[in-house]
């Protein structure tokens, strides 16, 4: 394997780790010392060189290992990737968007050659070479959405737009924060967000939906979400909850720095041209507490965020049980100094 990509696991012996470079570019999600829901969407325009925003779809050192993990999840449970029949066109839109972006942004790793509808795709990190006919699913080993998202980090959902609503009707979901595609597929925007506490009363979803219905092709947007995960497990699915749930009970003051991870989702939204659907990539970034506290500002701020978060939210995010342990650990890095505004390290 190329030196560009880590050899690591997200299960079993959990050898996942971030390099110093990966810590430096980690998308820390808190612009201030407290957290509450907000629509907080901004244009998904290219960011600083080296940042996770540099390209439309970020490919990082975990790419190859994450794709191997996805293949394992799908082998165990193929229902993690589903497409309702009318969503295949949106799948082709997504395949085109990703292939063109990656070939443009990472020419050293990806190539796309087109001769009319005869396409030739080369993915060097995963050692894939595929000649196929665009819009003819019989020329690919999987449907278009599954094919390309087996080669792209992050979860993906495809939303059909009709009747002034967005309907989640296709998806590849193997690195999720505890929600089930199999259960939620077919739901409207507010139906699939129904279990989220507090936000409905704040009209968060009314405003977000209104905004997204007007999302335009060529003008993607992004926002952050976050939660906490014990061990570097990408697949925190409700399906497997009995398997990973007990890990929360074995945390100790000695192991928390190593085992507790902040889990950040970089969520982007893009209008797709042929289908008028919206694709929602949910890219998961993990960082160990002991990696995170190497940045003093992030350590101070995370301590304050966790300390002040309402229990209802800590419960929903699944870390109420270990909140005291987290605070004990993080407190030692919070000297009470003020933090500067914004996401970046000082």
């Amino acid at each position: 394997m190329s030196l560009d990509f880590n050899v690591e696991t997200f299960r079993g012996d959990y050898t996942f780790k971030n390099s110093a470079k990966a810590i430096k570019r980690f998308p820390f999600p808190f612009p201030e010392d407290s957290y509450m829901y907000s629509v907080n969407m901004e244009p998904h325009v290219p960011g600083a060189v080296g940042s996770v925003f540099e390209h439309l779809f970020d490919v990082d050192e975990h790419y190859v290992a994450e794709m191997r993990d996805r293949a394992q999840v799908l082998a165990e449970d193929p229902l993690r990737c589903q497409t309702l029949p009318h969503m295949e066109l949106a799948g082709w839109d997504l395949l085109e968007l990703i292939m063109e972006s990656k070939a443009r942004d990472y020419p050293q790793w990806f190539e796309l050659h087109k001769d009319g509808d005869n396409w030739h795709w080369i993915n060097k990190p995963l050692q894939i070479e595929q000649k196929f006919t665009f819009m003819d699913a019989s020329t690919l080993p999987y449907g278009p959405m599954e094919y390309i998202t087996r080669q792209t980090q992050g979860d993906f959902t495809l939303q059909d737009q009709r009747d002034d609503d967005l309907w989640i009707e296709a998806g590849m979901v193997t690195t999720q924060a505890d929600w089930s595609l199999d259960f939620d597929i077919g739901m409207s925007f507010k139906q699939w967000h129904a279990p989220v506490p507090l936000a409905h009363q704040m009209n968060i979803f009314d405003r977000a939906l209104k905004f997204l219905l007007k999302l335009q092709h060529g003008a993607p947007v992004r926002r952050f979400n976050w939660t906490m995960t014990v061990d570097a497990l990408l697949d925190t699915s409700p399906e497997n909850y009995p398997k990973w749930g007990p890990s929360k009970t074995t945390m100790t003051p000695e192991t928390i720095g190593h085992r507790q991870h902040l889990r950040v989702e970089l969520q982007t939204l893009h209008r797709l041209p042929r289908s008028n659907a919206i694709v929602f990539p949910i890219r998961c970034y993990l960082i160990r507490f002991e990696e995170l506290v190497t940045v003093p500002k992030w350590a101070r701020r995370l301590h304050r965020v966790v300390r002040d978060i309402p229990d209802e939210l800590a419960t929903y995010k699944g870390f109420l049980r270990n909140k005291p342990l987290m605070l004990d650990y993080l407190a030692q890095f919070d000297d009470g100094q003020p933090t500067s505004p914004g996401f970046g390290a000082d």
């Binding site: 009318h86 969503m87 066109l89 092709h217 003008a219 041209p273 289908s275």
Partner: peptide, 12 residues
């Protein structure tokens, strides 16, 4: 302008 669709077909 970029194309905008306010009159889409119902794909189902």
């Amino acid at each position: 302008s970029q194309p905008v669709n306010l009159f889409p077909l119902d794909a189902r």
